[in-house]
Design a protein around this nucleic acid. Structure first.
Lengths: 330, 330
DNA sequence: TGAACGTATTGAAACGTTTCATTCGTCGGG
DNA sequence: CCCGACGAATGAAACGTTTCAATACGTTCA
């Protein structure tokens, strides 16, 4: 089965190859009956245009690449969804490659997208600083970083303000009348954790002296780590227990909640609980979990707009938003 | 900044373009010092090869496309991971597009991958039967379906045997001495749910007359639906309660577990509980959840091997496997 | 010493499209 | 009745690689 090209279509429709190409690309400039004839020929022959040749000649790929740490992570999944919606609007498609925090794979995908002539690349970097960016940007493919601090370097980026998020959570707890607040999470070398803790401190200071803020470190931001922390914490005599907990993410919060419920503590009456990320599951925990939502889709959409030159800001920071559910709504 | 091509590299290195291309593609056939000179020129000029031209000429793209319903779904995420690992081994990259169950988007991605000359496409179809497959296969891009029943049509596919999975779960419960078993899930028009229920029935029949199997339908396979079902169920007087529950998936099982725990039932002593899918979270529930694991990575890896012609089976069905944890290990 | 051979490099053709300067008709206005 | 203009279609050039037959240059063997 020989490949079918514009040439074959042209022959079948009784027109020139140039005309076929015109039908493919700007059909409004071609007479209606010619269009019909060419379309018929295309359908009959099952012609599929060769994207490589098209792109080679035209220089555009109508494609945006995204290289993410982990596509299964709901945050990135939402970023990608937002990117797709926005790309759709500009007739682009989003192609996703997952690096799994492996620098070699990240580089391979970056090179791939660059070579394939993607019109832009959205990157959540596996390592800091990202290796090849200078080269790639130089080659002419714009890159936007997602949720990575540009640290002085002036690379375009979109991010969520985790400090603000931490402050948001804690001032919400304070506003609900809580005074002895615990922060559960770790390790603090993860920037997101550190920033949220910083925000928590800021909110506590802002409230004045009668708010206590205590830090409960966990070795990871997982359910099991959260549960262990919760078990520790609930063993304290009641007067020395916090009356509210802010967890570095929702998984930790779920673990803490398990421990508290099993120990018979009432949420939120005895202890209020708030997480971070607003994962799907947050609404479905035993006591629906309050959380801080990151506008992930907006991040993705904005990144794509920046890539395609429809938004000429160079670095955008989004504000997280509070989602109040039962676990703090006593 | 004019684009830099092999021509420029050749000039800078003092060789012909043919030689540059050889260095790029089979450097072992080129003298060592020439390689060095060309590499230096490439680095200095920041040359990035034009993938479109390369592909146009060579016909191969070293790319495999995957079109999935939802990349955030852990099952598909694992399929993709498996596909990536396998593709890696063959110097290929996996590009992912998410259709979100939208047929138009699915078609767009299929067309895109087909036009881009992907060496194969891995598809979890949004609708049945998939629309364009005939065309695409005809054009020469092999397609393998993931987790979709080929229903007579002889399309290549990889899948997990859900009937076997259902049987596996229920015979495990029976083996643990349970006799009054409930199946929680729905709606039954979802093939996976129906198949698992079928498997459950088969296992019950196999065990003879002294096993009762009852069906508890839910409107969806979600945590909340599971919790509602669990609450209903636990309100029955103890003698009329099942002593074991098999849930159509882990989310439902989590919901059921919440209801049982809140009602004070002991798991697994009063009621054993087993889910399906073995999501990450299964090990981190209040009582660690037994489940049926689907070999998702193997699915992805096998699909890629089939696409690249390294495995000439046309349709492969995998057996699920049992993961026993506390919730059935009384 | 010459022929035969092997290795390293070269130059040009080819991949299948888009684009652009032309050509071809046709129609309206002077 | 002719000219200019305009819409539609044409044909060939160009995109930047890879590939392949041909060439150049040593080296080995008889």
């Amino acid at each position: 089965m020989a490949r079918i090209g514009v040439r074959d279509v042209a022959r079948a429709a009784g027109v020139s190859v140039g005309t076929v190409s015109h039908v493919l690309n700007h059909r409004e400039k071609v007479a209606a009956d010619t269009v019909a004839r060419v379309d018929a020929a295309i359908a009959e022959l099952g012609f599929v245009r060769n994207g490589a040749a098209r792109q080679l000649r035209s220089g555009r790929s109508l494609t945006v690449g995204a290289v993410v740490l982990d596509a299964a992570n709901p945050f990135f999944a939402d970023v990608i969804r937002g990117a797709e919606e926005q790309a759709d609007a500009s007739e682009h498609a989003v192609l996703v490659g997952t690096s799994g925090a492996d620098e070699a794979r990240e580089r391979r995908y970056l090179d791939l997208f660059s070579e394939q002539g993607a019109d832009g690349i959205l990157l959540s970097p596996a390592a800091w600083p990202p290796q090849r960016l200078a080269q790639i940007a130089k080659r002419g493919t714009p890159v936007v970083l997602v949720d990575a601090q540009p640290e002085g370097s002036a690379l375009p980026s979109v991010a969520v303000d985790d400090v603000a998020g931490g402050a948001l959570a804690v001032s919400h707890l304070i506003g609900a009348g809580r005074r002895r607040i615990g922060f559960v999470g770790g390790p603090h070398r993860i920037r997101q954790v550190a920033d949220r803790w910083t925000g928590a401190q800021q909110a506590a200071e802002l409230a004045g002296g009668n708010v206590e803020l205590e830090r409960f470190d966990t070795p990871a931001t997982t359910v099991l780590a959260g549960r262990a922390a919760g078990e520790q914490l609930i063993m304290r005599p009641a007067p020395r227990r916090p009356d509210a907990l802010f967890c570095a993410n929702d998984l930790v919060a779920v673990g803490v909640m398990q421990a508290l419920v099993l120990a018979g503590a009432a949420i939120p009456d005895d202890i209020a609980l708030i997480g971070y990320d607003d994962i799907d599951f947050a609404a479905a925990t035993m006591v629906a979990l309050s959380s801080v939502r990151q506008p992930a889709r907006e991040l993705g959409a904005t990144a794509v707009r920046m890539l395609l030159g429809e938004d000429d800001r160079t670095s955008v920071t989004f504000a997280p938003e509070l989602v109040v559910r039962e676990s703090t709504d006593g």
